[in-house]
Amino acid sequence: MLTEQEKQEISEELKHCERPEAAAIEALRVVQKKRGWVSDASLRDVAAQLSMTPAELDAVATFYSFIFRKPVGRHVIALCDSMVCWSLGHDDLYKLISTKLGIGYGETTGDNRFTLLPASCLGACDRAPAMMVDDELFGPVTPETIDEILSKYS
């Protein structure tokens, strides 16, 4: 069940759209903001509010890597693995983070602090290798700066 506030915020988004499905991403984000991720049950509820079928909304949700369809940690690290970042050190950076946190792609630390995910092109090739933590973009990320970045998130 969506909370009254979630419903309210989704209706707010709907006002900006001629057709309800146009608000799909924003509506999913409303739920994700509150709950960290989008469960099947919430997706069903959002779909109903947008007059979409769950399958149609899930198509949108699973297309975008920043809509989480599985539980994630308190913070999500998205590491860019596209061409430019890859050629400027993605693999080393991945190894470094993964050793530090003890998790691979798609995994969450035991203390639920971080989830690590690959991202295709963050649009920050000029700052490669780039990564995002939650809504913040970092780059170029180096072995020297990584600790400082991660320490900001508890």
Binding site: D40, M52, T53, P54, A55, E56, D58, A59, T62, F63
Partner: peptide, 24 residues
């Protein structure tokens, strides 16, 4: 979707993972 307005089927996921799915 277009002809029936039922929308029972949709493409989920992306790239080589894409497939036609029903609700979950």
């Amino acid at each position: 979707r277009e002809q029936n307005a039922v929308g029972e089927l949709a493409f989920t996921r992306r790239g080589k993972e894409s497939k036609v799915s029903t609700d979950f």
